[in-house]
Design a binder for these strands. Structure first.
Length: 245
DNA sequence: AAGACTTCCAACCGCCTATCG
DNA sequence: CCGATAGGCGGTTGGAAGTCT
C-alpha cells in the first residue's frame, strides 16, 4: 500500500512515513503549529519536504481526523455535493468535519464513483423525460453552485481543521505531554537546532524541550507506541497505526 | 499453491493562487 | 507591476493487500 522509502536528489526522504516520523511531526505541529511548512521539517528533525509534512499532518495526524467507515449520511453528502460542484474536494471536505479532502477523493474514486455512475445510468430515462426543463434546471443549478461555494467558504473559514492559523491557535490551548510518546522521552538525531533565545516565532525548535509542560495538544501514544487521538470518535490514528504495525 | 488480476489508498506531482518585498 | 516564495488543490501513481483462476 505504502510507497517504498527512498531519497530524492536533495536528500529529502520520500515514501511511507514511519511511526517515528509521525511522532516527530505530530509533536512539533501540536506544540508549535504549522508556522511555515517549508521550514518546519528542518526544525522538527525530519528529512522531508514541507509539502509532504503538510499532507501527512492534514490527512492523518491532526486531531479529530476520521478514518474509514463512511456513514450513509456522509456518502449521501459527498454524492450530492459532487453532483452540484464537481471535484471540489476541499469544499466537500468542509461539509464533512474530520474528513480530509484526500480521503474523500479516494473514497469517491474507489466506491462512490461507481455507485454514482450506476445511479446515473438508471436515472437516464427520467432525465431524458425532463429534458424540456433543462434550461431552467441549469440556471437553478448554477445559482445553487454559487450558493454552495459561498456556504462552503464560510464553513471552511470556521472549521478549526482547515486553516493553518486556527490550527496554531487551537493547538496552543490544548494540554501537552510529549514525554509520554512511546512511553519514553523523545530522542532526536538533532539535539538542538539552534540556541534558544526568544519567542516561538523567532526561536528555532528546541527538540529536547518536549518534556516541558506547555499548553499544546499532545499526540499521545499507547504502550505499543501507537498514536491515540483524544478527539476522533470514529477511528483514532492509533487504530490506524495498529493496522499497520 | 501460485501467478494474474483487481482494489484501495498513501503519497507524490504539477499547477494555480495569494502574499510579500 | 513583477518576481519569488509559500500554501493549497486536484490529478495521478506505486505498490501492498485482497481476490480470482
Amino acid at each position: 500500500m505504502a510507497r517504498t522509502r527512498c531519497y530524492d536528489k536533495s536528500g529529502l526522504k520520500k515514501g511511507t512515513w514511519t511511526p517515528d516520523e509521525d511522532r516527530k511531526l505530530a509533536a512539533y505541529v501540536s506544540k508549535y503549529g504549522c508556522w511555515n511548512w517549508r521550514q518546519l521539517p528542518k526544525f522538527a528533525g525530519l528529512a522531508r519536504c514541507g509539502k509532504s509534512c503538510r499532507l501527512r499532518w492534514l490527512n492523518y495526524l491532526q486531531p479529530n481526523i476520521k478514518r474509514g467507515n463512511y456513514t450513509k449520511e456522509e456518502d449521501e453528502i459527498i454524492m450530492k455535493l459532487h453532483a452540484e460542484i464537481g471535484n471540489k474536494w476541499s469544499v466537500i471536505a468542509a461539509h464533512l468535519p474530520g474528513r480530509s479532502d484526500n480521503d474523500i477523493k479516494n473514497h469517491w474514486h474507489t466506491s462512490l464513483k461507481k455507485r454514482s455512475t450506476r445511479e446515473y445510468s438508471t436515472s437516464t430515462d427520467s432525465i431524458k423525460r425532463s429534458s424540456n426543463n433543462s434550461y431552467q434546471a441549469n440556471s437553478q443549478k448554477k445559482r445553487r453552485e454559487n450558493e454552495t461555494q459561498l456556504n462552503a467558504n464560510e464553513s471552511f473559514q470556521l472549521s478549526p481543521m482547515q486553516s493553518c492559523s486556527t490550527e496554531v491557535s487551537s493547538c496552543a490551548t490544548i494540554d501537552q505531554n510529549v514525554e509520554n510518546i512511546h512511553g519514553e522521552r523523545e530522542v532526536f538525531q538533532e539535539e538542538i537546532f539552534e540556541v534558544s533565545s526568544g519567542s516561538f516565532w523567532t526561536e528555532p525548535f528546541l527538540v529536547d524541550s518536549f518534556n516541558t509542560a506547555s499548553d499544546c495538544f499532545v499526540p499521545s501514544f499507547d504502550d505499543h507506541g501507537v498514536f491515540v487521538s483524544p478527539f476522533s470518535p470514529v477511528m483514532s490514528y492509533g487504530e490506524l497505526l495498529c493496522s499497520y504495525y
